[in-house]
């Protein structure tokens, strides 16, 4: 158990720092769930329909989705009926705890095993922040003393390769690239060979952004994944789906279809430094059970944090 405690202590330290930072950012620009609830609860003697409607608004405007919101509200009503809950002041804690339970189940940080190279394939729709997330991950792994190689498999969008190259320079690692318009599978093939030859610890593959409804492009993604598996058995070790916290209910469709195509093993939620609350992740966790790995909270190299359910609920809701 000792190793476990030590691990927890480390995590605690990290959590505190991030929590403060997140809170600091958030307090300036927006009201979190907690303070909003406090405000609607203030002065209320009992839990009535008006109060519940206010709570409903807060949950829905956090992009939690209608289904999850209705379920949470129903649970509260049930508890009130059974006289287990009647103090409005306990309402916040009650709802927070339920959301936390859902998210806690998927709080599973990415662990880099010793398979050399550990291959991470990064996927997602256009503009969610895949390349930026990759750069931040590369930076994180470098700081942990690992060697990192990037593969520029987005050969479609203009200047995507250049974008990854500039980031790689900042993170201090190399990029395997082909010409614009080249076959992404070929880039992936070369990158695995290079990673093996150079004895690289972590290989991160940047794929082109694609809408989850484009069947042909999803097939291309499957092909890329097949090539990786063929060249290195057991790889990719992680298929990371990047989701934009600004996205509404469509994020569920994204997660579903990407999961169907590539069996994603983790999620990174980006752009939490805006006013969007990313509540859709609660629906996704509850429904699809995909491990939550990282959150993106800014444009700086170190603005990628390991997902922590408690911190997420506290700071954002």
């Amino acid at each position: 158990m000792l190793w476990f405690k030590k691990d927890m202590a480390n995590k605690d330290k990290e959590t505190k720092g991030v929590l403060n930072r997140l809170k600091e950012r958030l307090s300036k620009t927006r009201e979190g769930f907690a303070s909003r609830v406090d405000r609607v609860v203030f002065g209320k003697k009992k839990i009535d329909d008006d109060l519940l409607e206010d709570i409903e608004e807060i949950l829905i405007t956090s992009d939690l989705g209608v289904q999850v919101t209705y379920r949470l509200i129903e649970n509260v009503k049930e508890k009130v009926k059974r006289k287990e809950l009647n103090d409005p002041n306990l309402l916040k804690e009650c709802i927070q705890r339920e959301i936390l339970d859902i998210l806690k189940a998927e709080e599973k940080p990415l662990e880099i095993s010793n398979s050399c190279p550990f291959v991470i394939m990064v996927v997602g729709v256009n503009g969610v922040g895949k390349t930026t997330t990759i750069a931040k991950m590369a930076n994180r792994f470098k700081e942990e003393g690992k060697s990192v190689l990037l593969a520029a498999a987005d050969t479609f969008r203009a200047a995507a390769i250049e974008q990854l190259e500039i980031w790689s320079e900042r993170a201090g690692c190399k990029v395997i690239k082909h010409q614009n318009g080249a076959d992404p599978s070929a880039v992936v093939f070369d990158s695995i060979k290079a990673a093996q030859a150079r004895d690289i610890d972590v290989l991160i593959i940047d794929t082109a952004g694609r809408l989850h409804t484009k069947v042909n492009l999803m097939e291309e993604l499957k092909k890329i994944q097949r090539i990786i598996g063929r060249e290195l058995s057991g790889a990719p070790h992680e298929v990371l789906l990047v989701l934009d916290a600004t996205t509404g209910q469509n994020a569920i469709s994204q997660a579903k279809l990407f999961k169907e195509a590539t069996n994603i093993t983790g999620i990174a939620l980006t752009k939490l430094d805006g006013t969007a609350k990313g509540g859709i992740i609660v629906s996704i966790s509850g429904e699809l059970k995909i491990p939550l790995r990282y959150v993106g909270i800014g444009e700086g190299m170190d603005d990628l944090k390991v997902f922590n359910a408690k911190e997420f609920v506290d700071a954002l809701f």
């Binding site: 829905i60 405007t61 956090s62 992009d63 729709v125 503009g127 934009d244 600004t246 996205t247 509404g248 209910q249 469509n250 994020a251 805006g274 006013t275 969007a276 609350k277 859709i280």
Partner: peptide
Amino acid sequence: ADAMTGQDAVNV
């Protein structure tokens, strides 16, 4: 603006 934007569209 992204058509997939959620509730935050009003703020942005």
